[in-house]
């Protein structure tokens, strides 16, 4: 059985927290460049140009792309042949967050007692951790700093089977239209369909991690993604909501079987600062 020490997990997460906040994944950067070429609104073009300039400054000066360096969402895909040694895994992850956010001069945005005193925890912990046991002897760590501007626009719909495909289209379009400029368009739209309420929300969040330009491997789902992207970009919201034809860079749908009585759908919106970074131990 392969052993991985929690010290390695802590140091990897500390490094990822910094790297992820100073640079965008290549696919997101390319999508923003294509958006600048395609956008017809002069204001929209200007905004997209500013966003690309912002990326250049963040890269070179190690200033966060966005001041909202997010809730640290961490996905751990743990190979079933891995034995984690050392400390408590959750604490090891939080220690990585603590070190990364402090050493990287990243904003600490987490508050305890959220419905009363709202006291800042001071080091951006705790992380929101999702663990998955997968085949193999590797550990894949993904850090997704999720800004609240887009996260606050998340919606869950427990649709009826009768509402079907059209019901999903209506729900997604309504969600994006209502959100307008709030989630910092151009956005990536992550959609979960099926499962239970919490499963479909997690699928929507995981959909945000898929590379832009990679449609769903399922033809029917890929068609729905394409149709939704067209419909969303016809809404006219545009970059930052000031009007334009590029409201979304991509629509990603993840599907799971559902109960005979259910058609859950969740929409997770990701701002243009679509930061996520992975490491394989």
């Amino acid at each position: 059985m392969r052993q991985i020490n929690t010290n390695k997990i802590t140091s990897t997460i500390a490094r990822l927290c910094q790297e992820v906040n100073f640079s965008l994944p290549d696919d997101v950067l390319d999508a923003l460049k294509r958006a600048r070429e395609k956008e017809v609104s002069p204001t929209g073009q200007q905004i997209l140009e500013s966003l690309l300039e912002n990326v250049r400054i963040a890269n070179t000066e190690k200033i966060p792309l966005c001041q909202d360096t997010g809730t640290a969402v961490v996905f751990l895909e743990i190979g079933q042949d891995v034995h984690i040694t050392g400390n408590n895994l959750t604490e090891a992850v939080n220690e990585g967050i603590r070190q990364g956010y402090t050493e990287g001069y990243l904003r600490k945005s987490m508050v305890s007692q959220p419905f009363s005193k709202r006291i800042n925890t001071g080091d951006n912990t705790p992380a929101v951790i999702h663990t998955f046991i997968v085949p193999g002897d590797r550990l894949k760590i993904t850090v997704l700093p999720k800004g609240a501007g887009s996260e606050n626009m998340t919606r869950l719909g427990m649709l009826t089977p009768a509402q079907g495909r059209q019901g999903i289209i209506d729900f997604v379009i309504e969600t994006v239209d209502k959100a307008g400029g709030n989630p910092c368009p151009p956005i990536i739209v992550g959609i979960g369909v099926g499962g239970t309420a919490e499963k479909t929300l997690l699928l929507a969040k995981q959909a945000l991690l898929r590379r832009i330009g990679e449609p769903s491997p399922d033809t029917e789902t890929a068609q729905l993604e394409e149709e939704l992207l067209g419909r969303i970009n016809d809404l006219g919201i545009g970059p930052q909501g000031l009007g334009g034809r590029i409201t979304a860079l991509a629509v990603h749908i993840e599907v799971f079987p559902a109960h005979i009585a259910s058609l859950p759908v969740a929409v997770s919106l990701q701002c243009h600062s679509a930061r996520h970074r992975e490491a394989l131990l």
Binding site: A58, I63, Q67, D68, Y105, L106, R107
Partner: peptide
């Protein structure tokens, strides 16, 4: 409406864009 990220030594302010 902004909550900036911390300034590094020598910087005036960190990242400082608008919040919703």
């Amino acid at each position: 409406f902004v909550g900036p990220s911390p300034a590094r030594p020598g910087q005036i302010i960190g990242s400082a864009g608008p919040t919703t």
